[in-house]
Write a protein that binds this DNA or RNA. Structure first.
Length: 661
RNA sequence: GCCAGCGUGGCUCAACGGUAGAGCGCCGCUUUCGUAAAGCGGAUGUUGUGGGUUCAAAUCCCACCGCUGGCUCCA
């Protein structure tokens, strides 16, 4: 009798003359598996399996089983939506990281209350327990079928598919074009919840129709679902927008303008500490510090290519009064004004969207020998970008932000070494702060040629340089086409916020193009002029976004060196007021950021307040301490740490600050 | 920018056509207290802005502004 070998080593005899798929299904079902895998391909239990091969069972414990579940639940949801709103056109409905979505094109606007109705319908479908039956048909036939059903998006999908046949899944009366795999039956659907409704352009392109997207999530059981939802709720409490308000770190108001951050005193401390730290690191690495203005002439940005390449995400140019008046007299329209500015007939100033053109002018201000290179110009440079209103959010997506920017000008031979040390610095930043959930992305040029400046050779060289470095940094990375800056490819460091969204922080970018456009030079050993290569880099990315992410990372409880208030002195009663003031003065004199709790509260209340304010250390001073010239130390999470001399305390805290822990 | 939802004292929320309210915070007084909330009293709102419907609007309608979640773009 034939024997099937599963990759767990178990051997299974199969009755002769029966399809192998059926045997696999029986084996899988017996073991509680929901699918089987051969190589990278997951096969559901009703899909014909290849006759030979090694099979792994996919159980409910494996992460990919959740993907399968969620994909199937998204189909069940689509089925439910179609039952409730028969005219709906289906777009796509994949499983995503923590759940699934499905996009619909329908007349009726979905409202949150509809979700409950849809869920109810879904439960009915689950109860019906139909088999997810896979079948295939030739392309032309498939196309005719979906067209007859009026499913125009599905037709578009089929047109884009490779291969001669198209697979469908049918469960009950619902059929969908789908690659699979799926649950064996709708009844296995487990626990699910629909979460929210959102708009989404068909294929993500704003020229296309706006579809209605329903997001949801699913787990194998109620407990896991509840745990996940609770975890999401918990994560929301770390949201930097909430903590930023509670802890008075920053403020946003439409009086100043959307996306324009006001750093409050406490938030400013965090930023200042980060700036001071990194500035010392830069100086020790041979960087020079520079300062440049916030605006620059249009001509400079025409040379750099920011204007017009980057035009859409800039605040409109500033024009002086005289010119404006003159143009008004000429009855110049706005459209015409734009044209004339693009042509360079009208001058103006731009709020700087990037610091590089200014730094380039500093480089150009003096002659450079190959002996001077690399020149590394660093600045906490504030830039302004007119982001689309719908994109703004808290500190992580704003219209004015400060980059810990620097531009390195070096010889081609020095380039890879410079890139590598920038990457090292970025890693140091992330490691020091314990940001470990970081993804490295190599962002390359995409096919749209209109978005980029420079020659194909320059791009190829730059991409080669980056790949070469990134291979040696010991971090896994992915390459993404179409994510490059307009002047060059880059290595990006991407982290997640409290609700799982990914944000780019640090970046290292190679640029052969701006040196060319600005005609940069250095004199080589051969006594002839050569063109330097530029590296743009920012280990934090932007201080706004970085601090926003950091607030969430620490849940507002900053380590001692970053804490806006490091110590709070808590007198037990008025009797120790004078002694407590002395302790406070001593701490401040030692360079610690210390405050004193307001009088007229019991010690318990003072402790509670300081803990909620996330002050790392409290020193309790009562009659006992005053008498012995001591302080009783308390940590916000570790509790009472015992009594000690103020000098001991200072030494202890200074050590902790130096360690940045 | 587009789709959807939401804007009520400093904060979190209630009132959902009929006199805007609670908790926390804030201010004052009493209490001076030993490791996560002392007691009493008080002030605080042109309900985001502007129009409209109505005898009457926080509540219904329209426009704008802002925020939140997505789509697209980026640090």
């Amino acid at each position: 009798m034939p024997t099937l070998i599963l990759s767990d080593g178990s051997r299974h005899t199969i009755p002769e003359g029966r399809p192998i798929a059926e045997s696999l299904r029986i084996i899988a079902a017996k073991s509680g598996a929901v699918a089987v895998k051969t190589g990278d391909a997951m096969l559901d239990l009703y899909t014909p399996a290849p006759v030979e091969g090694e099979f792994t069972l996919v159980t409910k414990e494996s992460p990919e089983s959740l993907e399968l579940l969620r994909h199937s639940v998204s189909h069940i949801m689509a089925d439910a939506v179609m039952r409730l709103f028969p005219k709906v056109k289906l777009a796509i409905g994949p499983a995503i990281e923590n759940g699934f979505y499905y996009d619909f094109d329908m007349e009726q606007k979905l409202i949150p209350e509809d979700l409950a109705r849809i869920e109810e319908e879904m439960r009915r479908i689950v109860k019906e327990n139909a088999i997810f039956r896979r079948f295939e048909m030739p392309r032309a036939e498939a196309l005719a079928r979906v067209r007859a059903e009026g499913q125009t998006y599905k037709a578009e999908l089929i047109e884009g598919l490779e291969g001669d046949t198209v697979s469908f899944y049918e469960s009950g009366k619902f059929t969908d074009v789908c690659r699979g795999p799926h649950l064996a039956r709708a009844g296995f659907a487990g626990a699910f919840k629909l979460l929210n409704i959102a708009g989404a352009y068909w294929r993500g392109d704003e020229k296309n129709a706006m579809l209605q997207r329903i997001y949801g999530t699913a787990f194998w059981n109620e407990t896991a679902l509840k745990a996940h939802l609770a975890q999401v709720e918990e994560a929301k409490k770390r949201d930097h927008r909430i903590l930023g308000k509670q802890l008075e770190l920053f403020h946003l108001t439409d009086v100043v303008g959307p996306g324009l951050v006001l750093w409050m005193p406490k938030g400013s401390i965090v930023r200042m500490e980060l700036e001071n730290w990194i500035r010392r690191e830069l100086l020790s690495r041979g960087y020079d510090v520079v300062y440049t203005p916030h605006i620059g002439r249009l001509g400079m940005y025409r040379t750099s290519g920011h204007f017009p390449y980057y035009q859409d995400s800039q605040y409109p140019p500033l024009i002086d009064r005289e010119t404006m008046k003159q143009l008004a007299d000429e009855k110049c329209s706005c459209g015409e004004l734009c044209n004339r500015m693009e042509k360079g007939e009208v001058d103006g100033y731009l709020l700087k969207p990037m610091n590089c053109p200014h730094h380039i002018q500093i480089y150009k201000a003096s002659q450079h020998s190959y002996r001077d290179l690399p020149v590394r110009l660093a600045e906490f440079g504030t830039v302004y970008r007119f982001e689309q209103s719908g994109e703004l959010g808290g500190m992580v997506r704003v219209r004015g932000f400060t980059q810990d920017d620097a531009h390195l000008f070096c010889t081609p031979e020095q380039l890879e070494g410079e890139i590598a040390s920038c990457v090292e610095l970025t890693k140091l930043v992330l490691e020091t702060l314990g940001l470990t959930d970081v993804v490295v992305r190599v962002s390359l040029r995409g096919p749209e040629s209109g978005k980029y400046v420079g020659s194909a050779e320059n791009w190829a060289r730059a991409e080669e340089n980056l790949r070469h470095v990134v291979k040696n940094i010991g971090m896994p990375y992915t390459e993404v086409v179409g994510e490059a800056a307009f002047y060059g490819p880059k290595i990006d460091f991407i982290v997640r916020d409290c609700i799982g969204r990914q944000w780019q922080l640090g970046t290292v970018q190679v640029d052969y193009n701006l040196p060319e456009r600005f005609g940069l030079e250095y004199i080589g050993a051969d006594n002839a002029p050569h063109q330097p290569v530029m590296v743009h880099r920012a280990p934090f990315g932007s201080l706004e976004r970085f601090v926003g992410i950091l607030i969430e990372h620490y849940a507002g409880a900053f380590p001692l060196w970053l804490a806006p208030e490091q110590v709070r002195v808590l007198p037990i009663s008025e009797g120790q007021a004078e002694y407590a003031q002395g302790v406070l003065k001593g701490l401040r004199a030692a360079g610690l950021r210390a405050e004193i709790a307001p009088a007229n509260e019991k010690i318990g209340a003072k402790i509670r307040q300081a803990t909620m304010d996330k002050v790392p250390y409290m020193v309790v001073v009562g009659a006992r301490e005053a008498e012995q010239g001591q302080v009783a130390l308390r940590h916000r999470t570790q509790g009472d740490l015992g009594a000690m001399k103020p000098e001991e305390l200072v030494e202890r805290l200074k050590r902790e600050i130096a360690e940045k822990k």
